[in-house]
């Protein structure tokens, strides 16, 4: 396990204009996340967890302060540089799966590899590996509409990890799943965290997710109010940066 910081923020703030006033979504957030962590931003709606996740994912820029993700300063990245960073090193998992409905499971998982310009043979190998990790190799030719919610989210996980990114960001990944599927999904991600050494960062207020986290960063009104390490179900790691 490496202990170098994969994410580091200093006095990170984000303000959104709101008519004549401004909404402070993040307020001087200082944070350091080490490689291989399995952590979550926890808090109610409006606490700033999705905003923080967006900045870490280079989808948004801070208003002030700095955020370094995978060694890159988010605030000074151009659109192209941010896209390249996401394409090569960051995976996303969404609340609503967001699979492309016209493509098969295989093609959905294959999409990030196409952007990387990988040749067809290597793509096939990587996609089938990713589908095997999430237990859906036999559904490669199915369309998303033929899958259950849990299976869709597993495809989304396969899509996020197929390029073996160093960082996976998951925004409320279990919000649309029942308890059984939520646990299944979390167990899959814990396993991937262990096997691939991928850092997972969640934004959640789902207790089922919290139970699996090594580290819980509690946000309220855009500030970190608590940063605590916790036991991870079926997880062997015990660390705190």
């Amino acid at each position: 396990m490496q202990n170098s910081a994969i994410i580091k923020t200093e006095n990170l703030s984000k303000t959104y204009p709101l008519g004549l006033t401004a909404l402070k979504a993040l307020d001087t957030v200082n944070l350091s996340v080490a490689t291989g962590e399995f952590l979550g931003f926890i808090g109610p709606s409006g606490s700033g967890k999705t905003t923080l996740l967006n900045i870490i994912g280079c989808l948004d820029a801070p208003t002030s302060g700095s955020a370094k993700v995978l060694g890159q300063p988010v605030e000074s990245l151009s659109h192209k540089e941010a896209a390249r960073l996401r394409m090569n090193r960051i995976g996303f998992i969404f609340q609503t799966f967001n699979l492309l409905p016209v493509y098969t499971v295989f093609e959905n998982v294959e999409f990030p590899l196409l952007l990387l310009g990988m040749d067809a043979e290597r793509r096939r190998g990587h996609v089938m590996d990713a589908l095997q990790w999430v237990g859906l190799a036999d559904r490669a030719d199915s369309k998303p509409a033929q899958l259950s919610g849990g299976e869709c989210q597993r495809v989304a996980i396969a899509r996020a990890i197929v390029k073996k990114p160093e960082l996976v960001l998951a925004d409320e990944p279990t919000a649309n799943l029942d308890a059984k599927n939520s646990h299944h999904i979390m167990q899959t991600m814990v396993q991937l965290n262990k096997e691939l050494k991928t850092t997972f960062v969640f934004a959640t207020h789902d207790e089922k997710v919290m139970a699996y986290l090594n580290r819980k960063i509690v946000l309220a009104d855009g500030r970190i109010v608590k940063d605590e390490a916790g036991g991870q179900k079926s997880n062997v790691r015990d660390q705190k940066p």
Partner: peptide
């Protein structure tokens, strides 16, 4: 726009 958002998130650039 949703699909574009996904493609951008996966790493495709806006252009």
């Amino acid at each position: 726009y949703g699909e574009f958002g996904l493609r951008l998130a996966v790493g495709e650039n806006k252009g």
